[in-house]
Design a binder for these strands. Structure first.
Lengths: 196, 196
DNA sequence: ACCTGAACACCGTTCAAGT
DNA sequence: ACCTGAACACCGTTCAAGT
């Protein structure tokens, strides 16, 4: 890549970062180009879709979250590792208002520039879930995609100004639901207490 | 209202119903006007905002849901009444893809044409919740707005094609979380079993 | 190689002009 | 009273023309 092109790219990316922080991920691409003193076509040549722009912008954060999941896997108890990683994920999305909808779409669209990152994130969460299930501290009838969906739900909640004040409490409610040990059939099994 | 105006209004409303069913609540208003063989300005005079159009379209369903909550209050057990009403609410929104975001915005915006209906709906849910809490079958640290938020979360999940297949399972997960009897401090109270 | 203005087909809003 | 076409200020996409 030519030096001037690289400079343009980096500058657009920096401007996009502040614009998205201010207005959310649906901010007008024309507006970003204007604020970067660059033609709209130039922006689109570097980042052909909104997702591509976001991918470049979020890659670092994505990698960080994935790495943190790996560390938690050995450093914390299965329960703490899972719950506090979930909390980190939800908290992270609040910095990019509206990103949840794009991630939900990307997780099943291999064409999306965000696809790979979302799949990696889901896999990291799935490992923490499996570990917690093996330890008997997480319900056994959910999988990594369910966890991804629960994160998405809670992140979406934080994006809605009217409901955001409830996001923390409802995180706890959902977390407690994941942690109710035992399977979903507990009620049918009439007190199957372990005889110690 | 003049007879021709009424006819126009009703026709626009019917066309809007099918258009929204096909494409979701974000469908182009211009498109609705075109399909109704009416000027766009005419549509906007009858329904000055997208919310006003939806309000007219959803009023019947809203009233029905509210009424059903009232009936359940006397006909079913506190637990069944709450859970099956929640299920009805979530199922209902799937008919209007994207309506959840508008409802979440409307619940705190008195200017929105959907505001009154959303507030009424929340109140209906709050009564069912209070009844369940009084019976000791629902956790006591949530209120009507939390229930509204949980419905919104689950409805939003159903709107995302990639996550919709998990909506039913996660409804059960969330419902079980609401029904975990006792307060959020249960874990701190070291086995407070009732001595029968 | 890289950039850009301009044309394009959309959107919702507004309003003067018609019946 | 009610309706409407047209103008307006936006949007993302595309591409021929410039450096």
């Amino acid at each position: 890549m030519r030096a001037d092109a690289r400079k343009n790219r980096d500058h657009v990316l920096a401007v996009a970062g502040t614009a998205i922080t201010e207005q959310g991920v649906d901010v007008s691409l024309r507006d970003i180009a204007r604020r970067a003193d660059v033609g709209l076509a130039t922006l689109l040549r570097h980042f052909p879709t909104r997702e591509a722009l976001l991918e470049a912008l979020l890659r670092t954060s994505f990698d960080e979250l994935t790495a943190r999941a790996g560390q938690a896997e050995t450093a914390s108890s299965p329960e703490d590792a899972l719950v506090s990683w979930l909390r980190d994920c939800v908290a992270w999305t609040t910095e990019y208002r509206g990103v949840t909808v794009l991630m939900a779409a990307a997780i099943e669209d291999p064409e999306s520039a965000l696809h790979a990152s979302c799949v990696t994130l889901r896999a990291a969460g799935a490992r923490l879930l499996t570990r917690a299930q093996a330890a008997g501290v997480a319900r056994s009838d959910i999988d990594g995609t369910d966890v991804f969906a629960l994160i998405a739900m809670l992140a979406w909640l934080g994006d809605q100004p009217s409901l955001a004040p409830r996001a923390d409490r409802l995180f706890d409610v959902v977390a407690s639901a994941i942690l109710s040990a035992g399977s979903s059939h507990a009620q049918e099994e009439r007190s199957p207490r372990t005889r110690s």
